[in-house]
Design a protein around this nucleic acid. Structure first.
Length: 831
RNA sequence: GCGAAAGUGGCGGAAUUGGCAGACGCGCCAGACUUAGGAUCUGGUACCGAAAGGUGUGGGGGUUCGAGUCCCCCCUUUCGCACCA
C-alpha cells in the first residue's frame, strides 16, 4: 500500500554512494527534521515569556485525550494551530502555544477492568508515547507548560472550583432521573446524551433515578445566550446556533388556572397567551407533583397513578430515535378555571407534557397547536378556533367578524401562525403580537400571571460513578449533611488500591480508607463522597492553567492569566459545539463572578476544523478514520515515509480548514515534490546568496529587467495574498500561492552564474519571502533554508529583533500594464 | 416533519466588491532521460467540433452591457433538532 519512498533508507543508501556535498544538495526530511527539533528543544525556541512586552497571541488547540496514539484528526488540528502560532511569531508576536492532556476518563478505567493494568501507569505511558509523536511532528509547543488533568496538582483545582460553586449554591445534590449509558456503566450529562445516544459509544441511553451532583449552569442561561453577541462574528454560525438551540430560550407568559372547588392553582407556561380563549383543557405531566394533591379523594387516582407509571417505564427505555411516541392521556375529572374567559375546562394528564420543561403543565389549545390538535382529535376534545389568518400580515383595525361558531370541523391541522384574534371577548380583532403584549400585562395586573422566560437548558450533572476522575470533595455526615472538605485538605487524592470490577458502583466505594473519615464540622464519623467529576470539568478551565501552570496556591494568578487570556484563536472539531464549548463559557462566567477573570467570553475566535476521512476498503464511502473501520492512517508512518513537513503541508493544502479532508496518499507525495524542488532551488542559489555581507541595496527600477520586474511583482502579490489568507484562515490557498511563487521563480530565466546584482536582489527577495511564508506549514525545512540563505539564529525573532514576516509593497505588487477585456453583448471579443 | 448550509472538470478545490470560470495540486495523456520507472524533467488536459466557432458552474425563469456570484421557483446532498408548550 505505502509506496516505498522511505527517506531514511534513501539517506543511508545515498551516504554510501554519494559524497558529502552531493548528499547536502538532496532533500532528506528525516535529517532536517531531527536537526531542527533538537535545536528548538535546546534553544527553548517555543517557550513563551510572561515578561515579554511584545503584543501577545494565544493559539490553542483542544485538549487531547491520551488514548495512546495520535490520529490524523489530531495532526490536522495541531497543524492548523501551529501554522497560526508560527505566523504570529514571525510577525513579532509573543505567542503562547501550549499542550496538555485530558487524562481522566473512561478508557483508562476500561483498561483497568479488562486487563488489570493500573490506570495511572496506563495513562502516563500513553502520554509519553503521544508526546513523542507530537515532537516528531515538530508542533511548536511550549513544553514547559504541559499539564495533565489526572495529576493531583491539576485536579486539586477542579476540587477547589467545585467547592467555590458549592459555597455559592451552584453545586448541589439531588435525586433525579439521569441519562444512563448501559455500555459505559455511568451517568451522562444532557449534553453528552444529546439525541438519546451516548456521545462516546453511540449506545441508546436509559433513564435512571440516581442521586447526583449538579452544577447550576441554568443560572447562566441568559448570559449564555445574551453574550453570544460578543463572539457572534468570530465563531462559526453553526456552533452558535446549536448553543442557542441548546439553551432554548423561550419568551412567553405563565398563567395560573384556579382549580374548581379547591384553593390550588395550576401554573402553565405558554408562548401563545393570545390563544387562551381556545384552551379546552389543562394538561399536566404524568409526574406532576400537584396531581397527588388534586386527586387525594378521587376515585380516578389509581388509574392516573398507573398511567404515570406506564409512561415512566416507557421513558426509561432506550429512546428509539425515529419513533414518535403516540400521544396518550387521561381525564382527571378535576376542573380548572380559565382566568380570561371564566370557563371551566377539564384537567388531563398526558405523556406529551414534560415535567422538566416550563412548569410541567400546559393549556391545551387544539386549534392552534399541532400537538394539542392531535391529542384533542384522539380524545374528542373540543377544537375552538380563536385566531384567524391576518390577510397579507396587514394589521386589520376592524374586528374580524366571524359567522358560524364551529369551523373546527373543517380543520385538518392546527393553525399555528400569528393572526387576528376571534372568539376572544374584548381581545377580539387584535393582532397576535399586540394581544400577547396586552394580555400578559392584564394577567400581571390581575395577579394570575405575567411575562416569563423559560429555557430548555438543564443543570449539568457532573457525578460519575467512576474511579478515574477528580473525587468530589464532599464529606457526608449523618448529622451535618454534605460538608465541604476544607481547602487546606485539598486535593482529595485518589487511593492507589481500588479494585475495578465494572459493576457500576464507584470503585472508590470499595476502599474503606478512602470512604471512612471524620466530619470537618462535628468531628464525628463520616463518609467521603465516592463520585468523581465529569472530565468535562477538567477541560472547562484548562487553558487558564497554561498561563500559570505550576501555581501551587491558586488555579492561576489572575494577573498572569490576564496577560494571555482570552484565547485569541481556538481550533478544534465541532463535535464539542454543545459540550465543552458551552461548559467552558459557563465556567468562565463563573470565574468572572469570583474575580478570577475580567471578561465574559473565554475565546475570541473559534475555528471548527473538518474531519479527516479515508475510503473504507471494499466500499466507495469516505468515513472518519477509525480503528473499527480499518481506514486509519498512522501519522508516524507518514512522517517516516514523507516527513513531518510534507505531511503537514499536504493536510493544510488539501482542503479548506473547515471542510472534510479526504486522505489521498498521492497528494502527500505532491507535498514532498514541492518541498524538494524548493530545497534544490535554494541550493542552486545559495552560493550567490548566503554571504550576507555581499548583500545589495534595493536596485533602482530600471536596473531590473522585465523578467525580474515580473518576479518581483509576483513576490509582492504573494505576500499580500498569503498574509490576507492567514487573516481569513484560508490556509489551502496560501499554500497554492506559495506554489505559484515558486513556479514563477522556476521560470525566471536567470542562472546563479549569469545573474546581475539586481537579479540577485530580486531572487533573494523572492526566496526569502517564500522561505519565511513556508515556515507555518513546513517549519523544519523552512529553518534549514533560512540557514542556507545565510541567516544564523533561526527564524523566530527574539525580543528586540524585527518581525520576519515579509511586508508587501503595494507599488511592486501592482500590475505593470492592465489588460482590458473587450466584451460585445456580453461576449468576449478580443484579448 | 422542522431548521440551516451547500451543489463548479475524473478528484480536492480556486475565482476580494457582479467583470477573461477552472488558479494550485492530485490523477490522466504524450514526450525526454533511462536496463528499468511507481524517480526526475518538458508539454498537454472542462465539453462539442477537422477548423472557424459554439456550449458550459444541479434544473428552470428573472435582473444586468455583463451572473458561479444578486432575485424567484424546483431538484439533490450534507449537517443539526426532533413532542421544549
Amino acid at each position: 500500500m505505502l509506496k516505498e519512498l522511505l527517506c531514511l533508507s534513501n539517506y543511508q543508501a545515498g551516504k554510501l554512494a554519494l559524497g558529502k556535498r552531493a548528499m547536502d544538495e538532496k532533500y532528506f526530511p528525516e535529517v532536517i527534521e531531527k536537526k531542527w527539533q533538537q535545536r528548538w528543544a535546546e534553544g527553548q525556541a517555543f517557550e513563551a515569556g510572561n515578561d515579554d512586552t511584545r503584543p501577545k497571541f494565544y493559539s490553542l488547540e483542544m485538549l487531547p485525550y491520551p488514548s495512546g496514539f495520535l490520529h490524523m484528526g489530531h495532526v490536522r488540528n495541531y497543524s492548523i494551530g501551529d501554522a497560526l502560532a508560527w505566523y504570529k511569531r514571525l510577525q513579532g508576536f509573543n505567542v503562547l502555544h501550549p499542550i496538555g492532556w485530558d487524562s481522566f476518563g473512561q478508557p483508562a478505567e476500561q483498561a483497568a477492568i479488562k486487563r488489570g493494568v493500573n490506570p495511572r501507569a496506563w495513562t502516563e505511558e500513553n502520554i509519553a508515547h503521544m508526546r513523542g509523536q507530537l515532537k516528531r511532528l515538530g508542533i511548536s509547543y511550549d513544553w514547559s507548560r504541559e499539564i495533565a488533568a489526572h495529576r493531583p496538582d491539576y485536579y486539586k483545582w477542579d476540587q477547589w472550583f467545585f467547592l467555590k460553586m458549592f459555597e455559592r449554591g451552584l453545586a448541589y445534590k439531588k435525586q433525579s432521573p439521569v441519562n444512563w449509558c448501559p455500555k459505559e456503566g455511568t451517568v451522562l450529562s444532557n449534553e453528552q446524551s444529546s439525541g438519546g445516544i451516548c456521545w462516546r459509544c453511540g449506545t441508546a441511553v436509559e433513564k435512571r433515578n440516581v442521586e447526583q451532583w449538579f452544577l447550576r449552569i441554568t443560572e447562566y442561561a441568559e448570559q449564555l445566550v445574551g453574550q453570544i453577541e460578543q463572539i457572534e462574528s468570530s465563531w462559526p454560525e453553526k456552533v452558535l446556533k446549536r448553543q442557542r438551540d441548546w439553551v432554548g430560550r423561550s419568551e412567553g407568559a405563565y398563567i395560573d388556572f384556579s382549580v374548581k372547588d379547591s384553593d390550588k392553582k395550576i401554573r402553565v407556561f405558554t408562548t401563545r397567551i393570545d390563544t387562551i380563549f381556545g384552551a379546552t383543557a389543562v394538561v399536566l405531566a404524568p409526574d406532576h407533583p400537584l396531581i397527588v394533591e388534586l386527586m387525594k379523594d378521587s376515585a380516578l387516582m389509581n388509574d392516573v397513578q398507573k398511567f404515570a407509571e406506564k409512561v415512566a417505564v416507557a421513558r426509561a427505555r432506550p429512546a428509539d430515535a425515529t419513533a414518535e411516541e403516540v400521544k396518550e392521556g387521561l381525564n382527571t375529572g378535576v376542573l380548572a378555571i380559565n382566568p380570561f374567559s371564566g370557563e371551566n375546562i377539564p384537567v388531563w394528564v398526558a405523556n406529551y407534557v414534560l415535567m422538566d420543561y416550563g412548569t410541567g403543565a400546559v393549556m391545551s389549545v387544539p386549534a392552534h397547536d399541532q400537538r394539542d390538535f392531535e391529542f384533542a382529535q384522539k380524545y374528542s376534545l373540543p377544537i375552538r378556533q380563536v385566531i384567524a389568518p391576518a390577510s397579507h400580515g396587514q394589521p386589520s383595525a376592524e374586528p374580524v367578524s366571524v359567522t358560524g361558531t364551529d369551523q373546527s370541523a373543517e380543520m385538518h391541522q392546527a393553525f399555528t401562525d400569528y393572526g387576528v384574534l376571534i372568539n376572544s371577548g374584548e381581545w377580539g380583532g387584535k393582532l397576535s403580537e399586540v394581544a400577547i403584549r396586552e394580555m400578559t400585562l392584564f394577567a400581571e395586573k390581575h395577579k394570575f400571571g405575567g411575562g416569563a422566560v423559560t429555557y430548555r437548558l438543564r443543570d449539568w450533572g457532573v457525578s460519575r460513578q467512576r474511579f478515574w476522575g477528580a473525587p468530589v470533595p464532599i464529606i457526608n455526615c449523618d448529622d451535618c449533611g454534605a460538608v465541604a472538605v476544607p481547602y487546606d485538605d485539598l486535593p482529595v487524592m485518589l487511593p492507589e488500591n481500588a479494585e475495578f470490577t465494572g459493576t457500576g458502583q464507584s470503585p472508590l466505594a470499595g476502599v474503606p480508607e478512602f470512604v471512612n473519615t471524620t466530619c470537618p464540622k462535628c468531628n464525628g464519623p463520616a463518609r467521603r463522597d465516592t463520585d468523581t467529576m465529569d472530565t468535562f470539568v477538567d477541560s472547562s478551565w484548562y487553558f487558564f492553567r497554561y498561563t500559570d501552570p505550576r501555581n501551587a496556591d491558586a488555579p492561576f494568578d489572575p494577573a498572569v492569566a490576564a496577560q494571555w487570556t482570552p484565547v485569541d484563536q481556538y481550533v478544534g472539531g465541532d463535535s464539542h459545539a454543545v459540550m465543552h464549548l458551552i461548559y467552558t463559557r459557563f465556567w468562565t462566567k463563573f470565574m468572572r463572578d469570583i474575580g478570577l477573570v475580567s471578561f465574559d467570553e473565554p475565546v475570541k475566535r473559534l475555528l471548527t476544523q473538518g474531519m479527516v476521512t479515508n475510503i473504507v476498503e471494499g466500499t466507495d464511502e469516505w468515513k472518519a478514520m477509525s480503528k473499527s473501520l480499518g481506514n486509519g492512517v498512522d501519522p508516524d508512518e507518514m512522517i517516516r515515509a514523507f516527513g513531518a513537513d510534507a505531511t503537514r503541508l499536504f493536510i493544510l493544502f488539501a482542503a479548506p480548514v473547515e471542510n472534510e479532508l479526504r486522505w489521498i496518499e498521492t497528494g502527500i507525495e505532491g507535498g514532498v515534490r514541492f518541498l524538494r524542488k524548493v530545497y534544490s532551488m535554494v541550493w542552486r542559489w545559495h552560493e550567490r546568496l548566503s554571504d550576507l555581507s555581499q548583500r545589495h541595496d534595493e536596485p533602482a527600477p530600471d536596473e531590473i529587467g522585465p523578467a525580474g520586474q515580473a518576479l518581483r511583482r509576483k513576490t509582492h502579490q504573494t505576500i499580500a495574498r498569503v498574509t490576507s489568507d492567514f487573516e481569513h484562515l484560508h490556509l489551502n490557498t496560501s499554500v497554492s500561492a506559495l506554489m505559484e511563487l515558486f513556479n514563477e521563480l522556476n521560470e525566471f530565466d536567470v542562472t546563479p552564474t549569469n545573474a546581475s546584482a539586481a537579479d540577485v536582489f530580486v531572487v533573494r527577495e523572492a526566496l526569502e519571502s517564500l522561505t519565511v511564508m513556508l515556515a507555518p506549514f513546513s517549519p523544519h525545512v523552512a529553518e534549514e533554508l533560512w540557514e542556507q540563505l545565510g541567516h544564523a539564529g533561526g527564524l523566530i525573532p527574539k525580543v528586540g529583533e524585527s518581525a520576519r514576516w515579509p511586508k508587501v509593497n503595494q507599488q511592486h505588487a501592482r500590475k505593470a500594464e492592465l489588460e482590458i477585456p473587450v466584451q460585445v453583448n456580453g461576449k468576449l471579443r478580443s484579448r
